[in-house]
Amino acid sequence: MNKKYEEIVFLHKPKENKLKYAIVAFLVGGLVGLLGEVLIRIYVSCFDLSRNDASLYMIITFIFMASLFTALGFFDKLVVKAKAGLLIPITGFAHSMTSAALDYKNEGPIFGIGSNVFKLAGSVIFYGVVSAWIFGMIRYLWEVLV
């Protein structure tokens, strides 16, 4: 009885099309990377910036767009479709901050926005700093000792 039930459940479960998700993530992520490179070229040629400065402006542009689109409400729908394609680039970082801030806005500026804004992005910064410090120590000691 139980086994039959499980079989029926298995048959009617909506199948996740993993291949489709993977291709969409690859294409969207690739387009984001391509757009980044295009923006760097545009900034270098139009505003006469060095390549380093242009890449900073490019990252700021992406953060601006991700924050704005999240605040306008349609970035969430894009994330549901593209998943990792938009979560892994820096857009995901900005998206998590803005959506957390908007979600907790009604709990006030201090305990709502201020303390929740890094709810998701905080783990990225925290583990980034920890791992960067550990690997930096290794590299530094390597150069000093060897």
Partner: peptide, 30 residues
């Protein structure tokens, strides 16, 4: 640019779909 960013996202998507890790785990690992 297209290939590198796409492949990083592809790896993340494969981890996301085939394990129980959430996007938070994956961004921290990356």
């Amino acid at each position: 640019s297209f290939l590198f960013c796409g492949i990083v996202c592809l790896i993340a998507e494969l981890i996301l779909d085939n394990t129980k890790l959430t996007p938070g785990h994956i961004t921290s690992i990356f």
